[in-house]
Design a protein around this nucleic acid. Structure first.
Lengths: 187, 187
DNA sequence: GTCTATATCAAGATAGAC
DNA sequence: GTCTATCTTGATATAGAC
């Protein structure tokens, strides 16, 4: 059943968001899916294999999202705002971005997964930079602002805010989103 | 030897920054200090105890740093800039903020350590908010900016940037610092 | 494709000698 | 305060039956 495989990866990503790569186990997955550990090993022989599948899923999700944004017929600024809003709404209050989670666990990851994380981080950054660049042509941003720096700052501040929100309260993230929108209003 | 205890906590914090709370082991510590695991257990019977010591050390470091900043005879804006610069310089390129690391591992932490992380996160945020408030009275910031939001954004973006820097390259952080300084120049 | 059973290993933890 | 030795547990992983 190819569906079971998808089901496992879906759950694994959730678990990465909640407990990290090191912190989640085949036991977590098997219990929540109501099958045995051995059964999970049938689909992903080693945790490393599951790790690769997780990162590949993250990459395709990111690419799909990029396409849906690009094809939308709104202004560059609105695309950017949609991206930011979506990033913020994607996660439950105690969840963090799976990419952040894997970046944190980076030194404990198998080498193949490390490479994948590098790839996904670069991809995310380049998507964001592209959106910021488009927005800059519409005077939503100062010409003096460095496009790449703005992109990194937006991503970093959202990801960081998710960490604080997890242990504090919900409106931590709201404050950051508001602040980002101020940067985006040409001053 | 009370010194050994300090030595263990020092190393444990480094390990948290490198591999996270879940990812580091008594074995890591014992090997690097050249003693046995049992010896580490003598000083910190359970990992939980070491976890508490780690967070308490983080808290006192933060408080000491706050005092040294407060007592310095520079402007509010310069205090803020010094804080930001120091946050950025504190960490080696593959290290992340230990608070971020513990926030990520939050759901896997013993309850006492969770409480401590909550405490340290609040403390950090309140310190930052205080500095931002002082800077605002000097027109370094727009009056319309929400002090708390600016504080969270500054902290979040630095912490997030450290995650990206770990897997990408060094000047990720530089871009974010530059961008923060733009926010701080009254626009 | 899922099961039971089991091997293997690393980590946290304790007992007792020196 | 550190050691050797040992225990326990939980996690990854495999073998082989259904």
């Amino acid at each position: 059943m190819e569906n079971r495989k998808k089901q496992i990866v879906d759950l694994a990503i959730k678990l990465v968001q909640q407990k990290g790569y090191v912190g989640f186990s085949y036991d977590d997955i098997s219990k929540q899916l109501g099958v045995t550990k051995a059964s999970i090993h049938y689909h992903f022989e080693k945790k490393e294999d599951l790790g690769v599948a997780i990162t590949e899923r993250i990459i395709t999700s990111l690419q799909n999202f990029l396409l849906s944004i690009k094809n939308s017929s709104v202004s560059g600024g609105d695309k950017l705002k949609r991206f930011i809003q979506q990033q913020a709404e994607r996660f439950a209050c105690t969840e963090i971005c799976p990419i952040s989670s894997l970046q944190t666990d980076f030194n404990s990851l198998p080498e193949i997964v490390q490479k994948k994380i590098e790839e996904v981080s670069r991809l995310e950054l380049s998507i964001m930079t592209e959106l910021v660049a488009e927005a800059q042509t519409e005077d939503i941003l100062n010409d003096t602002d460095d496009v790449q720096s703005v992109a990194v700052t937006i991503l970093s501040s959202i990801k960081g805010a998710l960490l604080y929100r997890r242990v504090l309260d919900d409106d931590i993230l709201t404050g950051v989103i508001n602040q980002i929108n101020l940067i985006l209003r040409k001053s």
